[in-house]
Design a protein around this nucleic acid. Structure first.
Lengths: 209, 209, 209, 209
DNA sequence: CATGAATGAGAGTTCATTCAT
DNA sequence: CATGAATGAACTCTCATTCAT
């Protein structure tokens, strides 16, 4: 292993043409995200992204063919992360529907609590007019397991028999706005309060008629 | 002398100098809103706003000293409208807490359903970094009656005993995302379905423990 | 007299078409001059001139067909004033060449001391590229008596036998820069010092070879 | 390893990134000066400067952050040149006060004769309202040797015992206006005439009382 | 691959001038 | 004549993108 690593290192540095630097991509992502939050789409300048990522402006265009492509990629990357958090297999508690729901909800809630910028960014971007339509379709596809889970709940008579999209929106919208208000007003949530928020989502979705 | 004065006065009144046109403000608002929805903040061009409002670019700057001022004013105006819809006195059904809640919720929901652009615009703008901080404080103040209503519900043991901000966020966030999904996927809601959405909000907030 | 004044007043206000208001011209001149000094040509805005003169922008264009025409007129007016100060018949002391020179020099110096803005304005305007060429010729013509005076001094062997334009420039240039330095550094000149400045000009022009 | 490092280093040095071009600064200066003379401050357009300097408008803003900064720098540069001409050590003729004065005066006069545009530009700019106040102070400081020279002449009883600023103004003002009249009227000066002008300045300053 | 100076189309804004009132 | 809102050409400045090094 050590030997191989060394070989690669030598190759990389001296002899072979340098391949696209994966670390740079990460740096650019971080930089772009940070500035996107601070300034919004309107204010994002490629020169600033480059400076924040400690590279030259020209270098940005080696990795992304345009500003739009860059922002789309940051979006795509962040969105994927959020989906994977939501659908993490660790959340699945076999045989216990409520526990699975709760685990999923808490995963998502805690992720948003920790990275509110990412959540806000993703939410805003959807309506920014900059998004690539193919990405929307993909999101749809990837979120199918969530739909199936909710439909399962409906079949079992646990969830309200409504259009699944409405149920999803109810859940996600509530989470998003709660995170936003927490973020905006610097509210500190105790574990109990988080569970109460979970309670609200559960009650909202639970069949009562 | 008096007579002469009167004549002059009359003349003066008839030949009145051109006055700033109130209709123009409305036209500009409409134009700006329309384009804001289509293009987002990044793409809003003053020249386009002017063209859409059928005035010259220079005229815009008679009414607003900058692009930022214009967008802020459109925001301010729209936000005020939304608050007034929510707190419309017609919604108050004396002696019936649920009916009052339902009426308020439906007013707001229907307004958002009818003008989803306005809702999306207001939501986005809060996190655009272009907003004037004084406006935020004012919103806070104007929404106090809503807080008092929710607190009243909590005192009566109807609503969950949580931080009021969390309850508000739960309700508004759900509404917003439901509207967004309806808008995005061109879903048609029947009256029954709207009432079911109201049901979700009510259940979410209703005390269950 | 009183009667006439009254008639005019009545006419003016009510019946007859208003003639161009002479006072307005003065107000505009004053306003334009004041701003010209403060901001230079680059910064002079017609709207500001109007505001300073307490009239509407449109009114300016009743009195002057363009910005250039206005500035030219202000220049023309001021220049005429300066020439008349220099060639005031009161300065002529018959039979005494030095006294006449001294009187002329002091008139001009004191005028510039009192209205440094006017002096600076006139000086700058000559090289602003905005000046009407006909005005230059006229200045030339009006200053002929000064030329004749200097030529007379040369014929009498009092002044140096140089190109008259050089002698004039020597005298005026010195006065202008002395005034400017006084103005810029807030220097207070005693009567003695003023006479010493006069002495410098006299010595410069006096034949010494 | 060392060898490889050396190779890389060499590569790096050969493929140097583009560096800010010193020649461009000169080109911009020349262009700006030329247009400044032709059009005055009012008419100077950045687009024209760029065209005249054979660069893109945007490039101007790499070198200067604003139009004002550009004009200030041109002024600063020209002013420095004028001061260095005046105080050129070659002018100092040890032990001969008159020769030193004459040499200095002629240097300055000939410089102004050759570059009347620069002289006019500097003179105008001082009263343009665009000048940076720090630059004025610096001029003051740099001209101290001239003050000391004049004061020396006063102590020796050669120059009139007047405020130094007045003497300086007398000398410079006369030079400036003589140059201006020569320029304006296309007068050709013989060497003799130049010396006669020098004579006027000397006589003006020489003690006679 | 990396750099960052150079580019120039295009954005926001100004302001001399006009014209309906 | 007087007004000042309206106009739009023209200006300054920005910034995504390119390209010589």
């Amino acid at each position: 292993m050590k030997y191989l690593y060394f070989c690669v290192e030598t190759n990389y540095t001296v002899v072979m043409p340098k391949v696209k630097d994966e670390k740079k991509v990460t740096d650019i992502h971080k930089a772009a995200m940070k500035l996107l939050i601070q300034t919004g789409f309107a204010g994002l300048k490629m020169a600033d992204v480059a400076k924040e990522a400690n590279i030259a402006t020209g270098t940005l265009y080696i990795y992304y063919k345009s500003k739009e492509a860059l922002v789309n990629d940051v979006y795509e990357h962040t969105r994927k992360e959020m989906v994977s958090v939501l659908l993490d297999s660790k959340n699945a508690v076999s045989g216990d529907f409520y526990k699975t729901f709760a685990s999923m909800w808490l995963s998502y809630f805690n992720y948003c609590l920790r990275y509110p910028e990412k959540m806000i960014f993703v939410e805003q971007f959807v309506y920014s007019g900059l998004i690539d339509s193919t990405i929307i379709d993909e999101t749809e596809k990837e979120l199918k397991p969530l739909n199936q889970f909710i439909e399962f709940g409906q079949e079992k008579g646990i969830f309200k028999p409504l259009n699944v999209e409405l149920l999803k929106a109810q859940m996600q919208g509530a989470v998003h706005d709660i995170i936003k208000v927490i973020h905006k007003k610097n509210i500190e949530l105790s574990d109990t309060e988080i569970l109460q928020c979970l309670g609200m989502s559960w009650d909202a979705m639970k069949r009562t008629f």
